[in-house]
């Protein structure tokens, strides 16, 4: 149990996927203008990333490795993720319209969110077993959500303040992200 707990702390705080590993930065800057959008994106990523992590793990160990086609990993994973996102979209639309209307517009964007493919590849690279894959994928996505929602909270305040024109938008976003990354770096001591 402690092993999983450590993995969660590591993935959420110490080695945050957005602020330390730089995965998923496009949606980070793109969908953080408003709190509601950020929460929607965070939920959609948690949902898809956990599923994608598990399925790509299965594809790697039950399809690619037995067939000795490991070099096709990138192409296989991205196709699996694209298909999964489409499938989730269709299933949600049919079974949970409320959830679909909340997450729907974010789903197509997730295919090209490099956090999803990145975590899928890290799971394999680190030789994680099934349980570790589930925990790490979920925790990474939670780390993404946490950083995104905190960041959106800050940016909502910016919208109310006066700022030189050259600083508006992406520039202030990047500098704020830098300061947040600095704060998250403080957690590194947790990792020993």
């Amino acid at each position: 149990m402690t092993e999983y707990l450590l993995l969660v702390v590591y993935a959420v705080l110490v080695n945050n996927i957005l602020l330390a590993q730089f995965l998923g930065n496009c949606p980070f800057l793109g969908t953080s203008q408003k709190m509601s959008t950020a929460t929607g994106m965070a939920m959609a990523v948690i949902f898809v990333l956990t599923f994608a992590g598990v399925i790509t793990w299965a594809v790697q160990w039950y399809v690619l490795v037995p067939l000795e086609l490991e070099y096709l990993q990138t192409i296989a994973f991205i196709l699996v993720i694209a298909a999964l996102v489409q499938l989730v979209e269709i299933v949600l639309q049919k079974t949970a319209p409320a959830l679909y209307s909340a997450l729907g517009i974010f789903l197509p964007l997730i295919t090209t969110n490099c956090a999803v493919l990145g975590v899928a590849i890290i799971n394999i690279k680190e030789d994680y077993d099934f349980a570790n894959t589930v925990v790490f994928s979920f925790a990474s996505a939670v780390g993404f959500g946490l950083a995104l929602v905190l960041f959106a909270g800050l940016r909502e305040r910016f919208a109310l303040s006066r700022m030189p024109r050259a600083l508006q938008g992406t520039v202030s976003g990047l500098i704020t992200a830098g300061l947040m990354a600095l704060a998250f770096q403080g957690f590194m001591k947790l990792g020993g």
Binding site: A166, L167, V171, L174, I175, A177, G178, L179, A181, Q185
Partner: peptide, 22 residues
Amino acid sequence: VDPPGAFVCLGAMLLLMNLISE
């Protein structure tokens, strides 16, 4: 060279470009 520097440095370069075009 640490992660926070990446964000700040990119932000500073973008700021410079904005100023020049302005």
